[in-house]
Design a protein around this nucleic acid. Structure first.
Length: 592
RNA sequence: GGUCGCGUAGCUCAGCUGGAUAGAGCAUCUGCCUUCUAAGCAGACGGUCGAAGGUUCGAAUCCUUCCGCGAUCACCA
């Protein structure tokens, strides 16, 4: 039982004895640094039930606690705040209990329900960019956090491999490519395909300009550019299963997948299962037809099918075209149902998709609820803000994107130059160094993105790039490396039993308090789908450790009991850093 | 125009299920490396928490209105 629960009971007991009043709850908060104490009871809310002076009430409760609760050493009251000092032995006991625990803070999977987390979900006509990085990091991290909180998780993505956009790349490649392949060009497959997507756009714009020149209205020129018509024709052929088109489509998509795999590997994200839009785009129509019979949807005169959400404050939304074909929404309905069919233990899904689709997901979830699926109550749109550049929005067609591969490379290079400047890597092989630069560079990038609230827009300035000092990934990694250095040097037996009567240094106590918060932080992060909570927690822990490291000697401590305890404490802090960073998908280095 | 989100120090962000004098980092300035890694520590400077009302013993936090920024409101995905 946690200390807070324990104290809650005791405070309720105290008030009952002293005032004959049964409190429903007790409000706690951590004691502010400028006052003496470890945990604080806020007395004010009690005034609704107990009449009197808050200072007096607080004092009396405090006296009761000191007398009746072993863990309470002493109390003081400031205004309406009852500050409680907890005994050192309580913290030592806590540490003793968790020291051997392997995955402290993680909860072993206990429920049969699974959650499917979707993220990435790119188009196959261009390489991944910074926006995808945010998406991938968020989705991956939330999946890891959910796992750590005791849920079973399937990671997935839906690959948008179909549609006019891929036909554009295909057409441009046919037209201008002269048989170029990733092998012949040395280009990563996704970049090669992206190159032709841009080439298409260029040709398309030229044709429009030409035709406008000769007097065609702009709108007409845009619709009737020959190259666009050809792309549309190609899509029709694809849908009809034309052998040649399908073969080309398979070839070029294959290039893209190889490229994506490399990027995912570099980013350190993975998937348990994949869905392809070419397989799912026909799904959902039967569900809509069924829902139409049950009156969930209605049909308009032209044959199109809609849902009326005006009661929910939304509009009418189309779910089936008049020609009976599926729209985006239809697909998503079908895909969701398909997933539950494929993985019957799913009871909940998380969709990691940008906030420009807030409305879409609101509608999707409502439709699924109206269709009566029990799991529809457990759907969450992990919505995040766009990543913008100082020059404005990223547009891949115009080449104003921060390419994912370039950015990762960039971060590694920065890590390399900083490391070389500091020159602490004597004895590391070239390979080890390279690995380390990767760890640090990626750590900086991932932390930079994950520490901010997903809802907020990120303005990314490539010129200023990402910090390596202060509240950053490398700062935390550095602390971890320092701890490992201590552990390497402590080559004697530190496994002596803890002396429970030891006096704790203030910094040791603060560290223990911070460690104690880890499990609840993981739970909170899972409930809120928020990697930022993990990042901020880790930062606080690390700051606390560095302060401790600076003020007290660890290996130099002459009292063997204390020295060993400090080494064990450092080890545990290292473990928690590693566990926390694993939830963010960030590696920790042994040296740096 | 309707709907949703955001607005906290010069910059980047915490805090937002109401609690004590609003916290960090960067930048600027001051100290600390013959002692466990200075990617560090200690400190200084810096705030009408977008504005105005309201609820409350108490509001950055909840409610209302307004302002600014963004997104969205397709038989596109």
């Amino acid at each position: 039982m946690s200390l807070q629960n324990d104290l809650t009971q005791k405070v309720i007991e105290a008030v009952k004895q002293l005032y004959q009043v049964e409190l429903p709850t007790v409000e706690f908060q951590p004691t502010r640094k400028d006052f003496e104490g470890d945990i604080t009871v806020v007395v004010f809310p009690m005034l609704r039930q107990i009449k009197g002076n808050p200072v007096q009430i607080g004092t009396k409760i405090g006296e009761y606690l000191v007398e009746n609760v072993d863990e309470v050493l002493k109390c003081n009251v400031v205004q309406g705040f009852l500050n409680i000092v907890i005994t050192d032995s309580y913290y030592l006991n806590f540490f003793n209990n968790i020291f051997e625990e392997a995955n402290f803070g993680y909860v072993k999977s206990q429920s049969n329900d699974a959650v499917m987390v979707e993220y990435s979900s790119p188009n196959t006509n261009k390489p991944l960019h910074l926006g995808h990085i945010r998406n991938n990091l968020l989705g991956y991290s939330v999946a890891e956090i959910l796992k750590a909180s005791g849920k079973k998780v399937y990671k997935t993505q839906i690959i948008n491999d179909r549609g006019i956009h891929i036909c554009k790349s295909m057409l441009a490649w046919q037209r201008f490519g002269e048989g170029e392949t990733p092998e012949s060009s040395g280009l990563k497959g996704d970049h090669l395909v992206g190159k032709y997507y841009v080439a298409f756009d260029k040709a398309y714009k030229e044709q429009i300009a030409e035709s406008v020149e000769s007097g065609t209205p702009k709108e007409k020129a845009e619709k009737e550019a020959p190259i666009l018509l050809e792309a549309q024709e190609m899509l029709r052929k694809w849908e009809a299963g034309d052998d040649e088109v399908v073969a080309l489509w398979k070839k070029m998509n294959g290039w893209v997948y190889d490229g994506f795999d490399t990027t995912y590997k570099n980013l350190g994200v993975d998937f348990d299962t994949l869905y392809y839009e070419s397989d799912t785009y026909l799904l959902g129509r039967d569900v809509v037809k069924d829902g139409l019979e049950r009156g969930v949807f209605f049909k308009k005169e032209d044959g199109s099918v809609w849902i009326d959400l005006t009661d929910e404050g939304l509009d009418e939304k189309i779910v089936l075209r008049s020609d009976g074909t599926a729209v985006y929404m239809t697909q998503d309905i079908g895909t969701a149902i398909q997933r539950v069919t494929d993985y019957p233990d799913i009871n909940g899904m998380v969709y990691t998709v940008g906030n420009e689709q807030d409305y879409h997901f609101k509608v999707l979830f409502l439709i699924l609820k109206k269709l009566g699926y029990s799991w529809a109550e457990q759907l969450y749109h992990l919505s995040y803000g766009m990543v913008d550049l100082p020059s404005g929005k990223m547009k891949s067609r115009e080449g104003t994107v921060v390419d994912a591969d370039d950015l990762i490379k960039n971060m590694e290079d920065t890590a390399e130059s900083i490391s070389q400047e500091l020159g602490k890597l004597d004895g590391y092989s070239e390979e080890e160094k390279k690995e380390l630069y990767r760890t640090i560079g990626l750590g900086a990038l991932k932390y930079y993105i994950l520490k901010v609230d997903p809802k907020k827009r990120i303005l990314f300035n490539p010129e200023e790039s990402v910090d390596f000092q202060g509240n950053t990934g490398p700062f935390i990694q550095y602390t971890y490396a320092r701890i490992q250095s201590i552990l390497r040097k402590a080559d004697f037996d530190v496994s002596t039993a803890l002396d429970m009567t030891m006096d704790l240094h203030e910094k040791e106590k603060e560290l223990l308090k911070q460690i104690q918060l880890f499990p609840e932080t993981v739970q909170l992060a899972a409930e809120n789908f928020s990697p930022a909570l993990i990042a901020n927690y880790t930062y606080d822990l690390v700051k606390e450790f560095n302060s401790f490291y600076q003020q007290v000697s660890i290996l130099g401590e002459t009292d063997e009991q204390k020295r060993n305890f400090r080494i064990q404490l450092s080890q545990k802090v290292g473990e928690v850093i590693q566990s926390a960073f694993r939830l963010l998908g960030i590696d920790v280095p042994e040296r740096m």
